[in-house]
Design a protein around this nucleic acid. Structure first.
Lengths: 219, 219
DNA sequence: CGCTAATCTAGAACAAGTTTCAGACTTGAT
DNA sequence: ATCAAGTCTGAAACTTGTTCTAGATTAGCG
């Protein structure tokens, strides 16, 4: 998987944000372009659901989304970019779902653990898709940093939501970072068959104890 | 990076342990085979030190270790296997170094943090090598599980050593697991340029607090 | 409408991981 | 010393991610 510099900037993501736009940044795509992008992401998720990271083959994605290979690469400059974008997509969906049914736990730690376990169960329903997304996320090199960072921020928001905090202390943010680390790494051990579901649950519950450590009293 | 099944078992690692052997398992390699293996690992580490994961190209490894490509693949069935083996090698070395100068901290948490920071500084000296090894580790799929597991066990031993525990409680083992998760994931964020060295330090110190949580009193 | 720049397409070409194969070399046992 | 089995070599082939090119289409604009 060769990764080189991309000197000639591809004009696909001009990041021109209009005031009214909901999303953080949206290149001004025409309708057909938006449709193409959707088709690509859909094909990606579909192939990933079948056979995980390896099953997402660029030629196949191009074919099943009815787009030329070159076009696919114009939209997503690498397979990892594509899969990370797929993850962003899924995360948004998940965040929406979680918002509707906030976790019930008494303490912040419980709520976070509950939220993550809910996400984990969702991933278990599509383990191959999870594999593709998580592997892409951790394999991503510097060229994908912005996108990976975006995923990370989104995850942070979800966890802070679960904690029910408006403005967390630095200590709490550190705890959240560690929780995210554990979350990603635990997923990997699960996906590669080195840890059971039960073990992941324990790990999540264990890190979440850190929250109590940083905020002994809360709502 | 295609990954397929390997039905015809390659007879390279018969795992025939003799009573007197120091290592956990050593296939009965002839001297020349042992030498080849060393040359390969050396070439791998050298190339990795130059340019990280991408710079370790199987053809080049084969060439600089004076071995045919087919032979390289007989010794290490994939690039990831090779890099994980390289990591095992380095870890052993590091464990030796750490044993000589045990950490000085008062509490177990301090000692673990100190140990990990020491390891982190070692990695900083060879960031490309670190990149190659860590990326391989997290990208490894099920076919590499045994080897990755071995690395994980070795890491656990190092952490338990730092804690100074003979037989840890289940709670403590959970904490160690979470520390390892954080360690790996924090390294990745550092390697991909999404977190600073200072941030990694904070993350490590933050997880290490979990140790105090599981053992308020200790030597 | 007609022009121009940007975008899209099909397809070839290239790069690096992996596999395969025929033949030469080693090893271990007789 | 000799034979069989296992190992190593060199080279080609195959796979899949990525790049490149020439020509068709499309979008925006006068």
């Amino acid at each position: 998987m060769p990764a080189q510099a991309k000197p000639p900037a591809k004009p696909v993501k001009p990041v021109k944000v209009e005031a009214g736009t909901v999303r953080t940044d949206s290149p001004p795509l025409t309708e057909r372009q938006e449709a193409r992008r959707r088709r690509i992401l859909h094909a990606s998720a579909q192939l990933a659901s079948r056979g995980g990271f390896d099953a997402v083959q660029m030629r196949e994605v191009a074919e099943s989304s009815q787009v030329a290979l070159g076009t696919l690469y114009r939209y997503f400059p690498s397979k990892v970019h594509l899969l990370v974008a797929t993850m962003q997509d899924q995360l948004e969906h998940m965040h929406g779902t979680l918002r509707k049914k906030p976790p019930q736990g008494e303490t912040a730690a419980e709520r976070v653990a509950e939220t993550l376990m809910r996400a984990f169960r969702a991933l278990q329903r599509e383990p191959h898709l999870a594999d593709a997304m998580v592997r892409a996320l951790t394999f991503a090199d510097r060229s994908v940093s912005p996108e990976v960072d975006q995923v990370s921020r989104q995850t942070t928001v979800i966890i802070l939501d679960a904690m029910g905090l408006a403005d967390p202390t630095p200590d709490q943010l550190s705890a959240v970072r560690v929780i995210e680390h554990t979350w990603h790494s635990a997923l990997i051990t699960w996906l590669s068959g080195r840890a059971s579901i039960a073990q992941v649950k324990i790990d999540i519950e264990t890190v979440c104890r850190l929250i109590d450590l940083t905020a002994p009293d809360e709502t």
